[in-house]
């Protein structure tokens, strides 16, 4: 159940996801979102306060790693998919 207006909600969530919704998309998205959130809300009828959550189904102990050096990528492999490179660095946007 949303605690805020759907449009305000969408704006907040899109800022958090860094996804902008174009005006053409907005109507479809708002309409779909409403339906999907209502669908999600069907679980609200259950009282699960005494149930432990299950996040992962793995029963075995997970794989861990010994502290041993392995192979890294070559710098060519690292930069192959990078569009803007400067002196071996990956060029990124401003941070302030």
């Amino acid at each position: 159940m949303l605690k805020e207006d759907l449009k305000v909600w969408l704006e907040r969530i899109s800022k958090l996801s860094l996804i902008r919704i174009s005006s053409e998309e907005e109507e479809i998205i708002l309409n779909d979102m409403k339906k999907i959130i209502e669908f999600f809300n069907t679980i609200n009828s259950l009282d699960l306060s005494n149930v432990e959550p299950l996040f992962m189904v793995l029963k075995d102990e997970p794989v861990v790693r010994d502290d041993e050096v392995g192979e890294s990528l070559s710098v060519d492999e690292v930069l192959k998919n990078v569009k803007e490179v400067e002196g071996g660095f990956i060029k990124g946007p401003k941070t302030a």
Binding site: L16, I19, M33, K94
Partner: peptide, 30 residues
Amino acid sequence: VEGRTWDEVYTEVRSEGFGLEVKKRILLGT
């Protein structure tokens, strides 16, 4: 990237790069 902040750049990449269904699921997952 030059002259632009990370959130501007990322928002543009993600808004243009992802399709509608993916965007919906990212938004709902967030």
